[in-house]
Amino acid sequence: MRIHLSSVFVECQERALRFYTGVLGFQTKHDIPLGEHRWLTVVSPEDPNGTELVLEPAAHPAVRPFLSALVEDGIPSTSFAVSDIAAEHARLERMGVRFTQPPTDLGPVITAVFDDTCGNLIQITQETRRT
């Protein structure tokens, strides 16, 4: 058994696709019309056959209160690995991304948290190889 999908709920799939590809730099893997919504997944260009991220429509009424409670407390929906978090933070800020937490050294990891503009906070993490 292996994990081939992970997902985030997004308020608007089209806006999410623009953000996750145009700003974060992921690539569209599947974009299949499915009635009102799409089966929409993206992958990292560093790992195109790796785990796909599903941009899942936030259509269920339970999603909005769930996400807004998490966002209020600064809790990210998921986390992505980066090799140079300072460079990534600077690059994303230049593109207008709002960080709720700038890169913070927590010992074995440096983490930062930003707003994906689609209802989620997303964490990025750089391992420091310290223990």
Partner: peptide, 24 residues
Amino acid sequence: DRNGQSLFEICARLTMKHGITSTR
């Protein structure tokens, strides 16, 4: 150290920098 933090950041700092494992 840094003013203006979310609850998530405060919890992460307490756990990782102080070994305080209090619940959120």
